[in-house]
Amino acid sequence: MDNPALVVRAGLYSRSVTSKWIRLRDRLAGKTEPEPLWAEGIPDHINVPIRDWLYDVLRGFGMATPVAVRLKLPSKILQSRDPAAEISVLDDRMDPMLRVEVLDATLGCLHQATQGDWQDRQTVASYAQELEGILREGDSAFTVSEDSSGLEHRIDEALHATYGKAVEAGASKAQSAADHLRAAFNEAHGLKADPSAAYSRAIKAVEAVANPLFLPNEMEPTLGKVRSHLDQGRNKYEMVIADRNGAPANIDAVVAMISLLWHGQRDRHEGGPTTAPVTQEAAETAVHTAAVLVHWISAGSIRKK
C-alpha cells in the first residue's frame, strides 16, 4: 500500500483493535453496556473522519462521477471545481440517510471497479477496514458488508459469528449454499432490504445442502420434499447431540425448523387464502433459521442411524 497515512488510520480503526469501549465516567458509575447505536444517518462526532475518508476514495479512485450518477445527484456537483469535495460533504437535514447512501454507493462503485486487480482489491480492503472502524467506534448502526461492496445494518456480534460459521460450513459442501446464504443476509440486513428475496434465498441455501444429502435421486427436489422425507423417516435419523437419557437425540427439532421455514414463506404463491407479503421480521428469522440448518446439515449434525 503506497499511502502511509492510510496504513496508520487503518491500524487505528481496524476490526481487531476496536471493541465495545465504555467511557471513563460510565465505567466509574458501574455501567457495563456501551452506548446505543446511532440509527439516523451519520452522527456529528464521526462526520469529519467520514468526510476525509470519502474525499480520499472519491479523489484517489476517480469515483465522483459513478457515485453521482448512481445516486442521481444534481449535475452542478459534477460541474463544480472539485466534485469529490462536493460529494464528501454532501448532507441533507431533511434526509439523514443521504450521507449513508453516499457511503454505500461509494463502496459499491469501488468494489465493482476494482474486481480485476489484486493490488487494487487489497487497497480497497484497507479503506473498507478503515471505514468499518470509524463506524464501529462511532457506534453507528451501519457496518461495512463482508465483501466490502456496501453497507448493511449492524447486528449482534455473536449472531454474526454464527452466520459466518454457517457460510464456512455450507461452502465446504456446496458453494451455492454459501452464496445463497450471503445473498440472503445482504437482502435481509442491507440498506434497502428485500424481505421476499431474503426469504427465498434462505430456502435455497438450505436446499443446496439438504437436497443432495436427503434426496439424492429426486429429479425435482425441494425443501418441502426434504421436510416430508425427514418427517416420515424420523426413525431413520438421529442427532449427534444427546437427549436427556444420554442417547442420540431425535430429529424433531430439525423437522420443526424446516417446517417453520417452509410454511412461513407466505408469498411463494399468489391467490391463496393465507398469501401475504413477507415481513422484515419474518425474513430476518428465516435467514437465521437457515444459517443454523445449513451449519447443522453441512457439519454432519444430522446422521443416519
Score class of each variant (00 low, 15 high):
Arg27His: 03
Ala158Lys: 15
Phe185Gln: 10
Arg244Tyr: 09
Asn235Met: 12
Asp120Ile: 06
Ala256Lys: 14
Leu78Asn: 04
Pro248Asp: 03
Tyr163Val: 11
Glu132Tyr: 04
Val206Ala: 03
Glu187Gly: 06
Gly108Ile: 00
Glu238Pro: 01
His295Gly: 08
Glu218Phe: 05
Met94Phe: 12
Arg59Tyr: 07
Ala205Gly: 07
Ala125Arg: 15
Asp2Leu: 14
Val69Phe: 07
Leu110Thr: 04
Asp92His: 12
Ala84Cys: 07
Pro66Lys: 03
Pro96Tyr: 03
Gln122Asp: 02
Leu78Ser: 01
Ile22Asp: 05
Lys76Trp: 12
Ile203Ala: 03
Glu137Trp: 00
Lys173Leu: 09
Ala39Lys: 13
Arg182Ile: 06
Gly108Thr: 04
Leu107Ala: 08
Lys204Met: 05
Met1Arg: 08
Asp120Leu: 15
Pro195Arg: 04
Ser140Pro: 00
Leu223Cys: 09
Pro216Ile: 09
Ala282Gln: 13
Gln232Gly: 11
Gly150Lys: 04
Arg266Gly: 09
His295Lys: 13
Asp91Met: 09
Val48Tyr: 02
Glu33Asp: 15
Asn211Gln: 06
Arg25His: 10
Gly264Lys: 06
Leu230Gln: 07
Ala210Cys: 11
His153Arg: 14
Gly264Met: 10
His269Trp: 02
Asn186Lys: 14
Glu152Leu: 13
Phe185Met: 11
Gly246Asp: 04
Leu213Met: 13
Asp267Ala: 15
Glu152Pro: 00
Thr274Asn: 07
Leu131Thr: 02
Leu107Tyr: 01
Leu151Thr: 06
Arg27Asp: 02
Leu159Glu: 15
Glu270Ala: 15
Leu215Ala: 12
Ala210Lys: 04
Met94Thr: 13
Met239Leu: 15
Thr279Met: 05
Val102Phe: 04
Ala171Gly: 04
Met239Cys: 14
Leu230Ile: 09
Ile241His: 07
Glu86Met: 12
Thr162Met: 14
Glu146Tyr: 11
Val292Trp: 10
Tyr55Thr: 10
Pro195Ile: 04
Leu78Lys: 02
Ala247Glu: 09
Asp92Phe: 04
Arg266Glu: 10
Gln232Val: 06
Val124Ala: 10
Arg121Ser: 07
Pro96Ser: 09
Ala198Asn: 02
Asn211His: 12
Asp231Asn: 13
Val294Trp: 05
Ser75Tyr: 05
Glu281Tyr: 02
Ser298Asn: 03
Ala276Asp: 05
Ala169Gly: 06
Pro43Tyr: 04
